[in-house]
Measured scan of single mutants.
Amino acid sequence: GPMASDKRPRTAFTAEQLQRLKAEFQTNRYLTEQRRQSLAQELGLNESQIKIWFQNKRAK
């Protein structure tokens, strides 16, 4: 629909990254900035991508 703007492409996470994020989520529903930074480095992701993933996951 018209609401779907092309400005922010959805990140396609790899299965491996998703597995890691899910495991982290089961341990911590809320990430500290430090955890998020190390996860971002570990997974080669953007911190904001991880932050948003957690927000979306909590919203469900």
Rank of each mutant, 00 (worst) to 15 (best):
G1L: 05
F25K: 02
S48V: 12
Q49K: 06
I52T: 11
S5V: 06
A4W: 14
P2I: 07
N56G: 06
E24A: 06
L45H: 02
T27F: 12
E16A: 13
W53P: 00
Q55R: 14
E24K: 01
T27W: 07
E33A: 14
K22L: 13
K51Q: 13
P9C: 14
N56M: 14
R35S: 05
F25N: 01
Q17H: 04
K22H: 13
S38R: 11
E47C: 04
L39V: 03
R20S: 05
Q26P: 01
Q26I: 10
Y30V: 09
E47Y: 03
F54P: 00
K7L: 12
T14D: 04
M3A: 15
E16T: 09
E24L: 04
K7P: 15
S48R: 11
L45T: 05
F25C: 02
F25V: 03
E47W: 03
R35T: 06
P2C: 15
K7N: 14
L18G: 03
R8L: 15
E33K: 14
T11Y: 13
R20L: 05
E47M: 05
G44I: 03
L45Y: 01
K60I: 09
S48G: 10
F25P: 00
T11M: 10
D6G: 07
R8S: 15
E42S: 05
Q26E: 12
T27L: 13
L31W: 04
A4L: 12
A12N: 12
L45G: 01
G44W: 03
F13Q: 01
P2L: 04
T14Q: 03
E24C: 03
K51T: 13
F13Y: 07
S5T: 13
L21N: 00
A12C: 11
F54K: 00
L45I: 10
Q34D: 10
G1W: 04
A40I: 03
Q49F: 07
T14C: 03
R35C: 04
K60Q: 10
T14I: 02
Q17W: 01
R35I: 05
G1E: 14
Q49C: 11
K7C: 15
N46P: 11
K57W: 09
S5G: 12
R58S: 06
N28V: 03
A12F: 12
G1T: 04
S48I: 14
M3S: 15
T32M: 03
T11W: 14
P9D: 08
R10N: 14
M3F: 03
K22P: 00
K7F: 11
Q41P: 01
Y30I: 08
I50D: 00
Q19R: 11
K7V: 13
M3Q: 15
A23Y: 10
Q55K: 15
Q34H: 08
L31G: 02
N28I: 03
I52F: 09
F54R: 00
E47P: 11
Q34N: 08
T32E: 05
R35E: 11
Q49Y: 10
T11P: 14
R20A: 07
K60S: 09
T32H: 05
I50N: 00
T32G: 07
E24D: 02
Q41N: 11
E16V: 09
L45P: 00
A15I: 09
A12I: 11
I50S: 01
E33G: 10
T11I: 10
T27C: 13
L43Y: 02
Q37Y: 11
R35Y: 07
N56V: 13
P9H: 06
R35Q: 10
S5P: 15
L39G: 00
K22S: 10
T11A: 10
L43S: 02
L45M: 08
L21K: 00
E24M: 03
Q41V: 13
T14E: 02
L43T: 07
L39A: 00
A4I: 07
P9S: 05
D6W: 00
F13K: 02
L45F: 02
Q37D: 05
D6Y: 00
L31N: 02
F54L: 02
F13V: 04
K22R: 12
L21A: 00
A4H: 14
Q49T: 12
Q17I: 08
L31A: 04
R36P: 02
T32S: 11
A4Q: 15
E33L: 14
R10H: 14
I50Q: 00
Q37C: 06
R8T: 15
Q41D: 08
N56L: 13
L31E: 05
W53Y: 07
K22Q: 12
E24G: 01
P2D: 15
Q26L: 08
A23N: 08
T11N: 12
R8A: 15
R20W: 02
I52D: 06
K7S: 13
M3Y: 02
L18Y: 08
Q26S: 09
A59S: 11
E33H: 14
Y30T: 10
K60W: 04
N46D: 11
R58A: 07
R20G: 04
E33P: 15
K60E: 11
T14K: 04
R20F: 04
R29E: 08
Q19G: 10
Q49R: 09
I52K: 14
W53M: 02
M3W: 01
Q37H: 11
K60M: 13
M3I: 15
K7H: 13
A12T: 12
I50R: 01
G1N: 07
